[in-house]
């Protein structure tokens, strides 16, 4: 809890929170980091293998193989989500399964699955970006800001 929030608490509340906090197990941050490294690395290794596969057996080069690779990774993630397996992998892998493109596919697929009972338009269509939406909004916005900075520096004679 941030210090700003703490200021609004009464002394009794603060005292209790310290009391409770001492009895709560903390998130195992170090173990989570190690697992995220292994899980994320594993997913990226598969991605690398898929990319090499496209380069070796099909008419792709390092630059163009990216698109079909991402499509394959998204498909794998969506299938695992649909089979109810991705959330179990994520409980173990944490950020390692959330950060790569597979995590992004999981957010959209899982939200779509849950909303199907509310119909295809208002349910699936309306909710599929429930979790992915903020990622897209702020991703596009930060790209825009970075691009503005780059253009400004360039026009001032930098780089």
């Amino acid at each position: 809890m941030s210090s700003i929030n703490r200021k609004n608490l009464t002394p009794a509340q603060q005292q209790y929170q310290d009391f409770a906090h001492a009895r709560e197990p903390q998130r195992p941050i170090f173990a989570n980091c190690v697992r995220a490294f292994i899980a994320g690395g594993f997913i990226c290794t598969i991605g690398q293998a898929v990319q090499l596969f496209f380069i070796t057996f099909f008419n792709f080069n390092e630059k163009t193989a990216g698109d079909p690779t991402v499509a394959v990774m998204i498909m794998i993630s969506v299938i695992l989500t649909s089979l109810g397996m991705y959330d179990h992998l994520a409980q173990w892998g944490g950020a390692g399964t959330a950060v790569p493109v597979t995590g992004f596919a999981n957010t959209i697929a899982s939200a779509s699955l849950d909303s199907k009972s509310e119909g295809f338009v208002l349910g699936v269509g309306g909710n599929m970006f429930k979790i992915a939406g903020p990622v897209i909004v702020f991703g596009v916005f930060s790209a825009f800001v970075v691009a503005i900075i780059k253009v400004t520096i360039k026009s001032l004679g930098g780089m």
Binding site: E24, P28, T81, T107, S110, L113
Partner: peptide, 21 residues
């Protein structure tokens, strides 16, 4: 379980890591 997760937290199949609490 699934109805509550969907309403209160994240979609049921969403891969969010749950804390020990």
């Amino acid at each position: 379980n699934a109805a509550s997760e969907k309403q209160y937290r994240y979609p049921t199949e969403y891969g969010a890591q749950k804390p020990p609490t």
